[in-house]
């Protein structure tokens, strides 16, 4: 599998279909590897312990200046690529994905191809069973108990924003948490500011999160961020039928509407 991935990456560079390949290095923690020479493709590595979502680099100006770009993409990263295209953050035709799934190399796809692959072979990607069970357990608790659980978890947050840096969905030029006129969210790593930040981060991903797990993997404090993400993912699916990352022209759940929406609450 690794051999096929490396050969394909080298071929993309040789044929100038990509000027930059973003993949994973073999060394501990599997950091991102930026390759522009075909011979360096031998250093590419992939297995399931590579938890970073490389689609997060696509909206960085340093990367977009070196298009066309190809990324090594897990299924979740493929979905992120589709979401980013829908949100005009990845120029179609300028981005390719070297798709991988566990120990298989699936081939090279452009955005349309990636969406087609997802729709045909993986039409119902969602939270894993163990994660859903955790969501289920937590939602059985009372509101007070749940709030106490999260208060305890969020108290550990140091506001390093590693979750934000790891997330492909967090590409704002200036995050709202860093705006100070007005300062909606307290930046001190304390109580309500931590609460606001973490809830807001999850909420901003609702209907957009592809459940790649990069945020939770990046968190040095071990916050169970994926529980929040998975809960909102189910909410978006059940209430609005939203499954992000399948349609490069899809509209966001928050921010789209139709005349057929339920109006019964209005009079």
């Amino acid at each position: 599998m690794m051999k096929a991935l490396r050969q394909e990456a080298a071929k993309l560079l040789q044929e100038k279909r990509a000027a930059l390949i973003i993949g994973f290095a073999e060394r501990e923690g599997h950091p991102a590897l930026f390759i522009s020479k075909p011979e360096d493709c031998e250093r590419l590595f992939y297995d399931v312990s590579c938890r970073q979502n490389l689609a997060a680099y696509l909206s960085k100006p340093e990367v977009s200046a070196r298009r066309p770009v190809a990324i090594v993409a897990s299924l979740a990263a493929l979905r992120s690529l589709v979401v980013l295209t829908a949100e005009s953050q990845a120029a179609p035709g300028q981005v390719l994905a070297l798709a991988v799934d566990k120990d298989a190399f699936l081939g090279t796809f452009d955005v349309a191809g990636a969406a087609e692959l997802l729709r045909s072979k993986y039409p119902d990607l969602g939270p894993e069973k163990a994660l859903l069970e955790r969501v289920g357990e937590l939602s059985k608790k009372s509101v007070v108990e749940r709030a106490a659980f999260w208060a305890e978890e969020f108290a550990k947050c140091t506001r390093c924003y590693a979750c934000r840096a790891a997330c492909p969905g967090c590409y704002c030029a200036r995050c709202i948490v860093e705006k100070n006129a007005p300062q909606w969210v307290s930046t001190a790593a304390l109580g309500h500011g931590n609460y606001s930040w973490n809830i807001m981060r999850a909420f901003h991903q609702s209907g957009r999160c592809t459940l790649c797990g990069a945020c939770e993997a990046a968190c040095p404090q071990g916050l169970p961020l994926m529980v929040l993400n998975a809960a909102l993912d189910r909410e978006a699916l059940e209430e609005f039928g939203a499954r992000p990352g399948y349609d490069p022209e899809g509209k966001p759940v928050i921010g789209s509407w139709s005349a057929e929406d339920d109006h019964s609450y209005m009079r």
């Binding site: 005009s88 030029a173 789209s256």
Partner: peptide, 15 residues
């Protein structure tokens, strides 16, 4: 314009 990331959420939301 300095901080707009062009995610286009407002474009699809604008009635």
């Amino acid at each position: 314009r300095a901080t707009c990331a062009h995610c286009r959420a407002c474009i699809s939301a604008c009635p």
